[in-house]
Design a binder for these strands. Structure first.
Lengths: 214, 214
DNA sequence: ATTCCGTAAATTGGCGCCAATAATGGATAC
DNA sequence: GTATCCATTATTGGCGCCAATTTACGGAAT
């Protein structure tokens, strides 16, 4: 109890800078192309210079920010070419394990996924952008987890992050969000019916329609 | 000319520490489980403390070394579970783009791949372990490049690295190396004949037989 | 008026020091 | 003789300063 409280207090004050910066990039608070001056970040996240530098180095390794030696860092802006390429990779990976997902499905997991899909629906109306983003992440993570390959889940999460600059811009459209929400439920339906072909079809549509997130 | 000379001289003296450490891990010079004390690395690579720290941080992000807070870093040793998972991922990805590779194949690319496969053969006899490793990398990179998705090539290279601790140990067997060399040529054959099914089959065998590298 | 150059301000990036923490060895008590 | 506790040592990790490079600004010359 006191431990939880301590952690919460500590995390609100001193959460990992890399995480904070990452979130601000993913949510679009720091748009693509923005110059990330070290002093600004230092003040923004109330942290020291080395912490900023470590965060920038990490995110540049993950190709989320671009490093121009002796000039600075800026939020990576990806061209259509690369966006397309990453979508292709996600389609290959996520349809490639669809059979394993279908093989491992249980009534309980279907129920859990339904709940997560509903949580996403709920967030569409009430939640903040970040909560919405997280709800989507939770659904997809749970879905992929059924494949029984945790390494894969991590890799897909990384790939997804890699492409997620300027992510929410394409998200804001209510129509598209509702479309995504519907597709989530359709995917659960297909999973429940153990319809592999349909699940693959839905996954591909889901990834491609919203080129970046899905 | 003088530029090349300069670069060569500079690189021998002051190559990026992360690269050096990475290579020593991949070649097995630093076996799995080894404690990576900062002072040792400082001396080993003749560099400063912050450089060592940056390299360790980067490689721990890539899950190549494990970070134990306030205790140190050690070369990651991966369990069979994870090895299996990563092989599965590689199979899905590399067989998943086989069709694109076949679609984009040209006589020139076949010739180039043959040369690279022969270079690998050559290295089996004469080259050092590292040269051998590089020759293998070059072949697979060229093969994957045919898919026309550079992002994918990078991701596969990353995944391959992720699992490559204790890599060459399973490599040393001459039988296995020769097997790999033969498979390279078989893959080029299948590619030349545009036999998609055969290529997929070979890729899967090639990845699975040597669980880690291939 | 425009362009070029030199100087000043700002920003990045390397480096070393010192505190905090864990491992080690020895001494003491049981 | 063995186990436990304390002191010493070694290692990690945070932090700030200073040099190197770049950019911005202003003045002078064409």
């Amino acid at each position: 109890m006191s431990d939880d409280l301590m952690e919460t207090e500590a995390s609100t004050d001193k959460k990992d800078v890399t995480e904070l910066l990452l979130h601000d990039i993913l949510t679009g608070t720091l748009p693509a192309g923005t110059w990330l001056k070290q002093i600004d970040l230092e003040r923004r996240y109330d942290c020291t210079r080395p912490e900023v530098r470590r965060a920038l180095d990490r995110l540049s390794q993950k190709r989320l920010v671009q490093h121009n030696p002796n000039r600075g860092y800026q939020v990576y802006e990806l061209d259509d070419q690369r966006t397309q390429e990453i979508s292709d990779i996600r389609v290959i990976l996520e349809t490639g394990i669809a059979d394993r997902i279908v093989a491992n499905v249980t009534p309980e997991s279907v129920r859990a996924l339904r709940d997560l899909a509903r949580a996403f629906d709920e967030m569409s109306f009430r939640g903040s952008i970040m909560e919405h983003y997280d709800a989507n992440l939770a659904f997809h993570r749970a879905l992929l987890m059924l494949a029984g390959n945790t390494e894969l889940v991590n890799i897909i999460a990384e790939i997804r992050q890699r492409t997620a600059s300027a992510p929410v811009s394409q998200w804001r459209t209510r129509a598209r969000i509702e479309q995504s929400a519907r597709e989530h439920h359709l995917m659960v339906d297909a999973l429940e019916a153990r319809d592999l072909a349909e699940l693959k079809r839905l996954i591909e549509i889901h990834i491609r329609q919203a080129p970046i997130r899905a």
